[in-house]
Design a protein around this nucleic acid. Sequence first.
DNA 1: CCCATTATTGCAAATTATTTGCAATTAGTG
DNA 2: CACTAATTGCAAATAATTTGCAATAATGGG
Lengths: 174, 174
Amino acid sequence: MDWITQVAERLRATGGRMTTQRRLILETLAQCTDHPTAEEIYQRARQRAPDLNLSTVYRTLRWLEDLGVVGTQRFEGERPQERFDPAVSAQPEHHHFRCRLCNTIIEFPAPLLEVLKQDFITHYGGTIESASLIFYGLCESCLQKVETYGPLSFNPNAITGPHERPSHSTGRAS
Amino acid sequence: MDWITQVAERLRATGGRMTTQRRLILETLAQCTDHPTAEEIYQRARQRAPDLNLSTVYRTLRWLEDLGVVGTQRFEGERPQERFDPAVSAQPEHHHFRCRLCNTIIEFPAPLLEVLKQDFITHYGGTIESASLIFYGLCESCLQKVETYGPLSFNPNAITGPHERPSHSTGRAS
DNA sequence: CCCATTATTGCAAATTATTTGCAATTAGTG
DNA sequence: CACTAATTGCAAATAATTTGCAATAATGGG
Ligand SMILES: [Mn+2]
Ligand SMILES: [Mn+2]
Ligand SMILES: [Zn+2]
Ligand SMILES: [Zn+2]
């Protein structure tokens, strides 16, 4: 039984219905190797069903989030938008490195984190149910480029557009 | 020389001006022991200067962010709003635990994280410039309560209001 | 296979967080 | 004290996400 059928069954079990849209979104997610935004998932899915609606994408994603089928991530320095992580079912506890220049994301396991969790609990008590660890820096390839060509002051892959926060302005004229 | 004067000097050094509003916001931040949102900082500061404007708060916070005087944090399960961290200058590398029930945040140092960073770099190369680690779970006191009274299905301290995401709804009637 | 029930969709409008343009104000400088 | 550029307040723009509702479609039973 494949992933989609599995999810579908969990859905049915709670009185939910498997619809064309949901199947499409699941198929789209299954093909992701990245951490797309709702909008990106919407655009990818829409290529096969142009009348799919963004609300449906959001609703489906929230539902999958509740089911633990997708995770959500927010990365610093980005527009305040949520990114979805279809990989959580495959690798339940993985963490993220994000390159400040090319925005590449590397997923990695961190078994050592358990020690940190234990450490915390010994000091402060309580329980830890989940953890989010994000490293920010330069990926190997960007590091090479910087070493070769000197520091880049700009982000070559930066998403541009209004409502960005490129380098701070208090309003003074340039 | 106190913290505010220090920040003020850094500001001057780049052609900035120290204004009443900025001083007020800095004083407000200096008194924070938590991780307030822009709105919260605005409300606290406004008690002393009712005509302070929220835009000014945002602009000042972004400026402080660039200076590395405040940090920003986003916690899972919250409204998608940014929280500001006035403690970064005092404790440059500290991390966060957030209680799922009472929303308490505990700050803690994690020197062991260096090992994890090294581990990562040995595997994938590149460099790590910063790291964000957040633990989610139950704080000691909530854990006690749960053990005594049984699991609470609701969050006693939850921020409520529209645009929340309380427990997922696909739109079906209840 | 068709019907009834009700979950789900598409659409448009609402919400909320954050940013921005601009004219009026003000800090810093001499 | 006057000048100039930085900053503010205000209102409006932007953008991500959610929601109400009528129309549509999935499921289960007859
Ligand atoms: Mn991932
Ligand atoms: Mn903190
Ligand atoms: Zn890179
Ligand atoms: Zn607690």
